[in-house]
Protein backbone atom coordinates (compact mmCIF):
# COMPACT_ATOMS: atom_id res chain seq x y z
CA UNK A 1 0.00 0.00 0.00
CA UNK A 2 1.20 3.49 -0.83
CA UNK A 3 2.85 5.08 2.24
CA UNK A 4 1.44 8.48 1.23
CA UNK A 5 -2.06 7.07 1.25
CA UNK A 6 -1.67 5.91 4.87
CA UNK A 7 -0.12 9.24 5.87
CA UNK A 8 -2.89 11.23 4.26
CA UNK A 9 -5.75 8.97 5.27
CA UNK A 10 -8.16 10.98 7.43
CA UNK A 11 -8.38 8.53 10.36
CA UNK A 12 -9.93 11.20 12.60
CA UNK A 13 -12.67 11.93 10.11
CA UNK A 14 -13.43 8.22 9.57
CA UNK A 15 -13.60 7.70 13.35
CA UNK A 16 -15.95 10.69 13.64
CA UNK A 17 -18.14 9.30 10.82
CA UNK A 18 -18.28 5.91 12.59
CA UNK A 19 -19.27 7.56 15.85
CA UNK A 20 -22.02 9.51 14.06
CA UNK A 21 -23.22 6.26 12.47
CA UNK A 22 -23.31 4.47 15.84
CA UNK A 23 -25.13 7.46 17.35
CA UNK A 24 -27.91 7.43 14.74
CA UNK A 25 -28.20 3.61 14.76
CA UNK A 26 -28.72 3.79 18.52
CA UNK A 27 -31.28 6.58 18.00
CA UNK A 28 -33.05 4.42 15.41
CA UNK A 29 -33.23 1.48 17.86
CA UNK A 30 -34.85 3.66 20.52
CA UNK A 31 -37.37 5.24 18.12
CA UNK A 32 -38.15 1.88 16.48
CA UNK A 33 -38.79 0.15 19.81
CA UNK A 34 -40.97 2.98 21.11
CA UNK A 35 -43.14 3.08 17.99
CA UNK A 36 -43.18 -0.64 17.18
CA UNK A 37 -43.72 -2.09 20.65
CA UNK A 38 -45.10 0.86 22.62
CA UNK A 39 -48.81 0.69 23.44
CA UNK A 40 -50.92 3.84 23.42
CA UNK A 41 -49.85 7.37 22.45
CA UNK A 42 -47.33 7.93 25.28
CA UNK A 43 -44.38 5.99 23.74
CA UNK A 44 -44.98 7.68 20.37
CA UNK A 45 -44.87 11.14 21.93
CA UNK A 46 -41.64 10.16 23.74
CA UNK A 47 -40.13 8.95 20.46
CA UNK A 48 -40.94 12.30 18.82
CA UNK A 49 -39.37 14.23 21.72
CA UNK A 50 -36.32 11.96 21.55
CA UNK A 51 -35.90 12.42 17.81
CA UNK A 52 -36.22 16.22 17.97
CA UNK A 53 -33.83 16.38 20.95
CA UNK A 54 -31.29 14.10 19.24
CA UNK A 55 -31.34 16.19 16.07
CA UNK A 56 -30.96 19.47 18.00
CA UNK A 57 -28.12 18.10 20.16
CA UNK A 58 -26.40 16.73 17.07
CA UNK A 59 -26.55 20.18 15.43
CA UNK A 60 -25.24 21.73 18.66
CA UNK A 61 -22.26 19.35 18.70
CA UNK A 62 -21.55 20.07 15.02
CA UNK A 63 -21.69 23.83 15.69
CA UNK A 64 -19.39 23.61 18.70
CA UNK A 65 -17.00 21.32 16.80
CA UNK A 66 -16.56 24.02 14.16
CA UNK A 67 -15.80 26.64 16.83
CA UNK A 68 -13.55 24.52 19.04
CA UNK A 69 -9.86 24.52 18.19
CA UNK A 70 -8.88 20.92 18.87
CA UNK A 71 -5.35 21.11 17.52
CA UNK A 72 -2.57 19.79 19.76
CA UNK A 73 -0.95 23.24 19.73
CA UNK A 74 -4.07 24.87 21.09
CA UNK A 75 -4.57 22.22 23.79
CA UNK A 76 -0.92 22.48 24.83
CA UNK A 77 -1.46 26.21 25.50
CA UNK A 78 -4.31 25.36 27.88
CA UNK A 79 -2.37 22.64 29.70
CA UNK A 80 1.26 23.67 29.27
CA UNK A 81 2.41 21.49 32.17
CA UNK A 82 0.77 18.39 30.75
CA UNK A 83 1.57 18.72 27.05
CA UNK A 84 4.86 20.01 25.68
CA UNK A 85 4.18 20.72 22.04
Amino acid sequence: MDANFIQNFPFGLVLLALLVLVYWIQAFFIIYHLIRFGIGPKPKIFSLIFFVGSALLFMLVAGLYVNADLSLGSISKIFPDLINY
Binding site: Y23, S54, V61, D69
Partner: peptide, 28 residues
Protein backbone atom coordinates in the same frame (compact mmCIF):
# COMPACT_ATOMS: atom_id res chain seq x y z
CA UNK B 1 -14.23 27.48 27.28
CA UNK B 2 -14.69 26.32 23.67
CA UNK B 3 -13.19 22.88 24.20
CA UNK B 4 -15.15 22.38 27.41
CA UNK B 5 -18.51 23.18 25.78
CA UNK B 6 -17.68 20.95 22.82
CA UNK B 7 -16.84 18.02 25.11
CA UNK B 8 -19.88 18.78 27.25
CA UNK B 9 -22.15 18.70 24.18
CA UNK B 10 -20.82 15.18 23.35
CA UNK B 11 -21.44 14.23 26.96
CA UNK B 12 -25.01 15.58 26.55
CA UNK B 13 -25.55 13.33 23.52
CA UNK B 14 -24.60 10.27 25.55
CA UNK B 15 -26.71 11.53 28.47
CA UNK B 16 -29.74 12.05 26.21
CA UNK B 17 -29.47 8.52 24.84
CA UNK B 18 -29.06 7.06 28.33
CA UNK B 19 -32.16 8.93 29.52
CA UNK B 20 -34.28 7.66 26.67
CA UNK B 21 -32.88 4.14 26.92
CA UNK B 22 -34.15 4.06 30.52
CA UNK B 23 -37.50 5.57 29.48
CA UNK B 24 -37.83 3.09 26.60
CA UNK B 25 -37.27 0.11 28.90
CA UNK B 26 -39.78 1.61 31.34
CA UNK B 27 -42.44 2.19 28.67
CA UNK B 28 -42.03 -1.25 27.12
Amino acid sequence: TNIFWFLYSIYLLIWWHSLFYILTMYLL
